[in-house]
C-alpha cells in the first residue's frame, strides 16, 4: 500500500517533469538516470553477493566503445550497436567471473581493477581506431538532437533495468544470492552452487553496465577513456554506498542525490570528488546501510511510541 502511495505520483512526476525543465536540468536528469542504471546494477553484485567489482565503469566503456566504433567504422546503427556492446560486456563478464570468483573476493577486486587499467591503456593507445584521449565522435540515436527524446529513452531503459533487478532479487535466485552473502558455508551446504550464483550475478550486472555505457556514449556523442575510468567507478560506488548498498532504493536515491548535488558544488572544481569521498568514507565506516538505513531508522523511532 505504502509502495503504491509513493510510486504512482513518482511515475507521473517522472513522465511530466521534463516538460517543465530547462535544457540544462533535463541534461542533469538524463545523467542521473545513467547513474541509476550503473549504481543499481553494481549493487546487484556488491550489495547482494558481497563481491566488489572495480570494472563496472570499464564494462560501461566496453558497451560505449563497441557500439560507437561499430557505428563510426561500419555504419551499424546505434540501436543495434548497443546490443552488440552489451553482449561483448557480458562475455567479458563471464570470462572474468570464471577466472577469479573461485579465488575469493580479493582476487576479483584486484583483477577487475587490472582489467579497467588494461582497457584504459588499450583505448588510449589504439588511437587509430579509438582516437584515444582525443575522444571519438559517434552518432546519436535520433537524427534530430532532442534532450526530451533522450530523457524518455533513458527513463524507459532504467525502468526495465529496475524491473529486472527487482524481480531477480525477489526470486529464488535472489534468495540464493543473499544466502551466499550471509553465510557462504551454510549456503554451500544447503546445495547452492555459490560460485555459479556469483558468476551469474556478475555477468548480469556487467551486461547492464555495458548497455548503460552504450546509451551514455550515444547521448554524449563523444566517447573517451574517461567513461571506463576509475574516477567514474568511484562515483558509481559512492552512489551505491551513500544511498545504501544491499537495498533496492539505495542506489537510486544515491544516484539522484549525488548527481544533482554535484551540479551545485561543481563551482568548487574537483573538490566535489573529495567531498563525496569523505562522505562515502564516513558512511561506509559508521552507517554501512547508507541513507536508506538512516531514513528507515528514523522512521521506526518516530512510529514506535
Amino acid at each position: 500500500m505504502m509502495k503504491t502511495w509513493i510510486s504512482l505520483p513518482l511515475i507521473f512526476l517522472l513522465i511530466f517533469l521534463p516538460f517543465f525543465l530547462s535544457q540544462y536540468w533535463l541534461h542533469v536528469m538524463i545523467i542521473s538516470l545513467f547513474y541509476v542504471m550503473m549504481a543499481s546494477s553494481w549493487n546487484l553484485i556488491a550489495g547482494y553477493t558481497g563481491q566488489i567489482s572495480f570494472a563496472h565503469a570499464a564494462f560501461a566503456g566496453v558497451g560505449a566503445y563497441v557500439s560507437g566504433m561499430l557505428a563510426v567504422n561500419i555504419g551499424i546503427p546505434p540501436w543495434l550497436g548497443i546490443f552488440v556492446g552489451t553482449f561483448v560486456a557480458s562475455l567479458l563478464g563471464v570470462g572474468l567471473g570464471y577466472l577469479c570468483i573461485r579465488m575469493g573476493g580479493i582476487y576479483l577486486s584486484l583483477t577487475t581493477l587490472g582489467f579497467s587499467e588494461i582497457l584504459r591503456i588499450i583505448i588510449t593507445n589504439e588511437d587509430r581506431w579509438t582516437r584515444g584521449t582525443m575522444g571519438l565522435q559517434i552518432p546519436g540515436f535520433f537524427t534530430e538532437y532532442s534532450k526530451m527524446s533522450y530523457y524518455f529513452l533513458f527513463l524507459i531503459v532504467s525502468a526495465v533495468f529496475l524491473f529486472i533487478l527487482y524481480r531477480l532479487i525477489h526470486s529464488e535466485m535472489g534468495l540464493s544470492f543473499r544466502a551466499v552473502l550471509n553465510d557462504e558455508l551454510a549456503a554451500a551446504s544447503s546445495g547452492i552452487d555459490t560460485i555459479r550464483v556469483r558468476i551469474l550475478a556478475f555477468t548480469i550486472s556487467s551486461a547492464m553496465a555495458g548497455m548503460a555505457g552504450g546509451l551514455y556514449g550515444h547521448y554524449l556523442m563523444l566517447i573517451t577513456p574517461d567513461i571506463p575510468s576509475l574516477g567514474q567507478m568511484f562515483l558509481v560506488l559512492a552512489m551505491a554506498v551513500i544511498g545504501g548498498m544491499g537495498s533496492f532504493i539505495g542506489p537510486i536515491l544515491g544516484a539522484f542525490v549525488l548527481e544533482v548535488l554535484s551540479e551545485y558544488i561543481r563551482i568548487y572544481g574537483e573538490y566535489h570528488v573529495l567531498l563525496f569521498g569523505l562522505v562515502a568514507l564516513g558512511v561506509a565506516r559508521f552507517a554501512p546501510e547508507g541513507m536508506v538505513g538512516v531514513i528507515k531508522k528514523r522512521w521506526k523511532v518516530k512510529e514506535s511510541p
Binding site: 556488491a46 566488489i52 573476493g105 580479493i106 560506488l237 554506498v241 569521498g277 562515502a280 568514507l281 561506509a284
Partner: peptide
C-alpha cells in the same frame, strides 16, 4: 567487502 570499499574510497 567493507575493507575493500574503505581502502578504495
Amino acid at each position: 567487502m567493507y575493507s575493500l570499499i574503505i581502502t578504495f574510497v
